[in-house]
Design a protein around this nucleic acid. Structure first.
Length: 224
DNA sequence: GCGACAG
DNA sequence: ATCTTGTCGC
């Protein structure tokens, strides 16, 4: 079972949230994946009819078969507004609750958002990685930072730069399709993160992990 | 003042 | 995130 580290009090104001990020970011580790990486979790949040209703969904996939071996959904209410740079304070609480409901502990978390590609180098993927101490990678659909277009072939990549600093990669997962934006979350290298994302994208632009979690969340958002 | 701004 | 039809291409 996944142990979620105590995060003391969740911030209620933006200044507190920034302070939490600056304190926790020193705990991100960059040593590679553990030897055995057989399963990966996809995490996603869907929004319900009520303005403050959120549905956190997690699926665990077996990497060899890309089959779903476990899942968990949690409905709750948002207690933090969406603020660029503070995204994790909105989505991490429900996602951590959903992670707690898993029976199969995944070897790595694949998050729907950024990791180090963040103004303070502590995006959602870093946050979830540090609080669970599980390896994690961030996969964003839009970039936070600038990049030169990578080559057109699947697997082509270009550095993602923020403040003229490399923070991740624009990775092409499908030929001639907009790249995804991969960055390290916790306990992995950028190469490992990109390699994992390619393993998870044999057919579509987005990883199967995020796709299955997304479907699970929307199904729950509309009843059963 | 103007543009940027993960989901 | 979410509200939504048709359309182009493999």
């Amino acid at each position: 079972m996944i142990e979620v580290r105590e995060w003391h009090e969740w911030p209620s104001a933006e200044a507190e949230a920034v302070a939490v990020q600056e304190r926790l970011r020193s705990e991100v580790r960059f040593d590679g994946f553990p030897a055995e990486v057989r399963t990966a979790a996809g995490l996603d949040v869907a929004y319900g009819a009520d303005d403050d209703e959120v549905i956190a969904a997690v699926t665990v996939l077996d990497l060899a078969e890309l089959s779903v071996v476990d899942r968990s959904v949690v409905r709750s209410r948002v207690e933090f507004p969406y603020v660029p740079g503070l995204f994790a304070f909105r989505e991490a609480p429900p996602l951590l609750a959903a992670l707690t409901g898993l029976e199969v502990e995944p070897d790595v978390l694949v998050c729907d958002g950024q990791g180090l590609a963040h103004p303070r180098r502590f995006g959602l993927a870093c946050h979830l990685g540090v609080l669970t101490d599980l390896p994690s990678v961030g996969v964003g659909k839009t970039a936070l930072g600038r990049y030169d277009p990578p080559g057109p072939e699947r697997g082509d990549r270009a550095p993602l730069l923020l403040d003229d600093e490399p923070v991740g990669a624009a990775l092409r997962t499908r030929r001639a399709v907009k790249p995804v934006f991969v960055s390290v979350g916790h306990r992995c290298t950028l190469d490992e993160a990109c390699e994992l994302v390619l393993r998870l994208t044999p057919h579509y632009r987005l990883p199967e992990t995020t796709r299955t979690a997304d479907r699970l969340g929307r199904a729950e958002a509309r009843g059963t």
